[in-house]
Structures are given as structure tokens and as C-alpha cells.
Simulated scan of single mutants.
Amino acid sequence: MSTVAVATGATPRLKTSAMIASFADAGQKTAPAPFGHALAAAAEADSRIVGLTADLGKYTDMHVFAEAHPDRFFQMGMAEQLLFGAAAGMAEAGLVPFASTYSVFAARRAYDFICLDIAEPNLNVNIVGGLPGLTTGYGPSHQATEDMAIFRGMPNLTIVDPCDSVDIAQAVPQLAASEGPTYLRLLRGKVPTVLDEYDYTFELGKAKVLRGGRDVVLVSSGLMTMRALQAAAELEKHKVDVAVVHTPTIKPFDEATVLAELAGDRLAVTLENHTVVGGLFETVASALVRSGQTRRVVPIGLPDEFLDAGALPTLHSKYGLSVDRIVAKVLAELG
């Protein structure tokens, strides 16, 4: 958070940092606009790919695609229903649309159009939602804390919650090749590069064990996989051995991999950049119940409430998504 003094001779007034900001740590390796570059590259190999946005090209990294393929880019204005209706029509005509807006506008404002125009006919339309979960400080109007809960009940829709630039770059061509509709929780701007150090490859519909551990297993998705890995490294200092399982595809969910890791008596924790209602935690819990397993799982995620506005570091700490809060929670559970 930056501090700015007001030129009145009064006590300096605190001013929060930019509300739409990178969640990367200082000095962390990042990649610029990985979604935009991956989509532009995929379009070089597949002439069917087109890009659309609802007046948010710059803020969903779709501008990179627009610059590379201006004849295949469509600016639909601030009309999300029109955005997805047009994308459905393009898919019916044999194109492969990627349509970007903020997650709140896709999930809340255009749900019926996505459901009946795209999901019901099972069209290859790729919905790209910016600012998922708590990746902006602008408050409830822009914080899509419940987007996965809204979309999980929609038949035919694949949901992807990527961790970093590696996930995004590898996911885009697989989403284009997927027959039905997809929803990508977009990480934009300067996105951390994390998974390149873990011999990792994104596979649509698959979870991956990034590291083993005998004491605790962290099951995570999205940017919380980065935090899970950081927390695991910190917990080593406390002689706690932590496994991390990354689940980038929320639906369809890789129950086999996750349930295999949850067998046994290790402390099990889910981590998600989403409300604990209807997201990863409840996906894992329902898989356990249906499989006949009985065990406790501790959720780390956003509370079932409308969140405050403010600077991201402050909000992530307040709502339990920061590394130090994760470490404290795990240590408290271990007693």
C-alpha cells in the first residue's frame, strides 16, 4: 500500500494502491497478459478462433488478440447479453468464440443467455471472466465471489480456475478444442509464473499433485494454489510436511486424484479464491460423501458475505487468503 502526503501541513493521509492490481508478490516472476498472447497464438493455428468483448478489451487482455487479429475481433459495447448471444451465433456458424467481460457481468447479468443460447445447445463458446473472486478491491459490484457457485449448476459448462501464466497459456488451446462451452476465471495483467518449477502440464479435467507431504494435504485451485505452495514452504520451517494438490478444472472435477490424496489421516484443507459456498470446498465435500468416505475437511476461502472495498493485500489478509493467515490456520488445526 502506498502512502501519499496531502500538501496542507496536516498529518499524511493514507491512499490505497490501485484497486485493479496484480496479486503478484514484489520481485516475483510474472508474464504479461498470458491469456491475450495465448489466444493470439492459438488463432494462428486455428482460423476459426474469434475474440469478442463487452467494452473491456484492455482489462481482460483481449486487446492483445485484437492487435494481432483485428479482422477477427468484435467490440460489442457494454451489452453482455448481446456479447454472449452473438458468440452463440458465431459458434452455430462454425467459429470458436472467446468472449470476455468481468466475471460478475457474465455470471449475474447474462446467465440466462449463457444457459439457453450456449449451454443448452452445447456450443463451443469460451466465456472469459475477469476479476474472479477477490482480485479487485472495488467491492461487491465487481468482486465475483460466487461465480463458480452460480455456474456449477449449469449443465454442459466446463469451469477452469487457473493458478498462473503457465495454466492459462496451456489451457487456452485446450478450451478451444473442447466441444462444449467453457468458463475461464481469468487472471490478467502481470500474472505470476509458478507452475514451471513443478514439472506441471495443464490437462483439462485433471488435478495434479504438485508436491507430497505426510502431515497435511492442501487441495487448491486458482491463485490459491500459488498461496498453498508458499504456505507449504513456510510450514516446513515449523517441521510440518505439506502436500499440495492443484485442481484447475472445477467442473468436471477429477474426483479420482483428489479422493486418493484425501485417503488417510492427514489434515485436509481446501483453498479457494471464492466463497466457501458452492465452490471447491463443497465440490470436494460432495465427492467425499458420494464415495462413502467420512472425514473432516477444513475450508479456507471467502466468507458468505459481501466483501469490503480496499487494497488487495489488506483484503487478502482480512479474509484469510494471505500466506501468513493460511499458515496460522493450518498450525491452529494441528494444535
Rank of each mutant, 00 (worst) to 15 (best):
V4K: 15
A5N: 15
A7H: 13
T8Q: 15
G9Y: 14
A10H: 13
T11K: 15
T16A: 15
M19K: 14
I20H: 08
A21K: 09
S22L: 13
F23Y: 09
A24W: 13
P34H: 07
D46A: 04
I49V: 12
L52T: 07
G57T: 01
K58V: 04
H63P: 05
H63I: 09
F65K: 04
P70T: 08
D71T: 11
F74M: 11
F74A: 06
L82G: 10
A86P: 04
A88D: 14
M90F: 14
E92L: 15
E92F: 14
A93D: 15
V96T: 15
F98Q: 08
A99E: 02
T101N: 07
Y102I: 09
R108Q: 13
A119C: 15
P121W: 10
N126S: 14
V128T: 01
G130Q: 04
G133K: 10
L134W: 01
H142R: 06
F151R: 07
R152P: 12
R152I: 05
L157D: 11
V160L: 10
D161G: 05
D161E: 07
S165W: 00
D167K: 00
A171I: 02
P173N: 09
P173R: 03
Q174P: 06
E179M: 10
G180N: 10
V194T: 13
D196K: 00
Y200P: 00
F202R: 03
E203T: 03
K206R: 14
V209H: 04
V209Q: 03
G212K: 06
R214Y: 08
V216H: 00
S221I: 03
G222A: 05
L223Q: 00
L223T: 09
M226A: 08
M226E: 05
A231I: 09
D241N: 10
T249P: 04
E255V: 02
T257V: 10
V258I: 10
E261G: 02
L262F: 06
V269G: 02
H274Y: 02
G279L: 00
A285D: 11
R290C: 01
R290Q: 14
S291C: 12
S291G: 07
G292C: 13
T294D: 12
R296I: 11
V297W: 08
V297P: 07
V297E: 07
G301N: 06
L302Y: 03
D304H: 11
E305L: 13
G310R: 08
V323I: 06
I326K: 04
V327Q: 02
A328C: 03
L334R: 10
